[in-house]
Every structure is written in C-alpha cells, then in structure tokens.
Design a protein around this nucleic acid. Structure first.
Lengths: 153, 153
DNA sequence: TCTGAAACCTATAAACT
DNA sequence: AGTTTATAGGTTTCAGA
C-alpha cells in the first residue's frame, strides 16, 4: 500500500466517526462486498493508518467536569531536564495531553479533574513536585464549543 | 442505573483503552459470562456514559503533521458576537477542538494541517474572515509527548 | 444479577473471476 | 481488486437460578 486510494479514505472517514459500523455496513455504503472492505481495513490497521479503536466517554457523567490547560515553561532546557520533565508528566494520569511547543512557552498540558479543588490539590501535590518548572500558567475551560478526534482528510 | 458500580467502571476502563475487545474477552477479564457484560455495556451506551466508538488515526501517515494551538481574544463580547464566533468556528473542519476559556484569553483552538504553509493559508483565508477576532496568537506543537482520549476514572 | 443454551449474524478465509 | 461461498466464533435473547 504505497498510497491510499479514494476507497481507503472513505473507509477511514467512516471509522473515525463510528468504529462500530460493521464491515458489511461500510461495504454497503461503498457499493462493495464485505471481503474487500475487510481486507482494506486490515491493511489500514497493519500499516498503522488506524492506530486504535476506543470508546469515548462522557466526562460530565463520569464526574470529571473540569478541564484545565496549563502552560509550562522550564527553568533549564538541557536535554536531560526536558526528558525528565516529560517522563514525570507521563506518570500523571490526570494529564490527557502534553505537547512540547515552539515559542515562549515550553509545554501545553490538558488536564481533567473532578473539581477546582482537585485542581488545586493536583498543582500543590503533583505538578509542584516536578522540579525545573519555571512558569506555570493555568487556564480553565468554561465551555467545550467543539471537540473531535477526527482529522479532516 | 443510579450509580456505576465497580464492574461498570472496569468495563469503561477497558473500552476506553480498546473498544475492539469482545464482550466475551471483557467478561473473562472480569470473571463473568458474556450476557451480563453485554447488558451492562448496552446500559452504559444508552445512559450516555459511552458517547461513541471511534477509530483513532495516525496524523503523520495521513499527512497532517502540523498541530497548532491558537489563542483567540474577541473584540466584542456580547452574547450575539460570541455565538456567532462559535458557529463560524464549527464550520472549519481543520479545527479539532475549540474551548471557551476563563481568563484573559477567550478561546483555545487546536488545529491540524498538512504544513506550515497550509496554516498560513488557513489563517489568511479562513480565520481572518471571521469578524470580531481581536488578538490571535499561534503556537506550534514540536512534539507530542503524550495524548490520550482516556479519562482517569 | 448472574448462568447457560440457542438463534442469529458477522468476521474471516478460501476459491474463483 | 473484486465476488461468492463456507464456517468458526461473537452477539444477542431468554428461560431459569
């Protein structure tokens, strides 16, 4: 599979919206039979175009209503310090996303918690335990306007 | 279902990691038979704890390597202006996430594109066409340290 | 709420166009 | 690359504990 053809892209568009669609249903949408669609999906998985299949949960119902975005700048920027920061962040289960950024801020973190109080404790007990954090600026999500795992392909 | 019990939570933890696990496999992990697990998953879906099932794709292989975070502040903050901004943002397929924030910045956007050039064009042709944007600050992801759709439950 | 059995359907593979 | 056919195994339902 050197390049994806139009059918592959259509399959990916369908599955990133709803991975519970059966091979048969996808095949019908594409005017094909199940076998070729089955083979294509297998290839897309094996080649890594599809990384995984997951259930997306409702954070409100699961009592994780608070989403915070943290902008972090390190004090020291040696390779060792950066690697250590990254590995320490990965230990924190509350951190959903962590990106190393270009620009005046070093890292963006997205954090999910049950309450503002829990955020306070999170910063006090966990983030502050990570050495080498120079500046820490917190922002809170008031409302999720739009959020998807889909890519525009 | 008033509250989730321990078995429900275990099911959710499994499915948010890998929704391809069969009912039977999940049942085995919990020392149960398929039937009760099947019923529980159905209930978790119907009650909205599980919102949807999706395939997560590889943005690099799909040629969307650039992730930008945009911080936007509006010029005017009347209800009408905010609603209009939000509905215009939802039209932009490149925007994966948009949050209304508390603090000195009004919105965070996460945008996925094929190149920095495409980002330039995106700002020039699409974002700038949205009226009422006061300040627009762009950050680029150098490296994804950690990214998951899972909640810590 | 669970177990276990039965019916049904899908995933998967093989043989062929 | 696709269709058709065959079958193992999972999904789904339900009676009973």
């Amino acid at each position: 599979m050197e390049k994806l053809d139009d059918i592959d892209l259509k399959i990916l568009r369908i599955l990133q919206k709803n991975s519970k669609k059966t091979t048969k249903e996808v095949a019908q949408m594409l005017n094909l039979t199940a076998s070729p669609v089955y083979e294509r999906i297998r290839r897309l998985e094996n080649k890594g175009y599809i990384k995984k299949y997951v259930a997306l949960l409702d954070k409100i119902q699961l009592n994780r209503p608070i989403t915070a975005v943290c902008m972090v700048s390190l004090r020291y920027h040696n390779e060792g310090f950066i690697d250590k920061f990254e590995s320490q962040i990965k230990e924190l289960k509350e951190v959903q996303e962590c990106y190393h950024m270009a620009g005046k801020v070093d890292f963006f973190l997205k954090i999910n918690l049950q309450s503002l109080d829990a955020y306070h404790e999170f910063v006090r007990l966990k983030l502050s335990k990570i050495e080498n954090i120079g500046v820490l600026e917190s922002y809170f999500v008031l409302k999720e306007i739009h959020s998807t795992t889909e890519f525009f392909i």
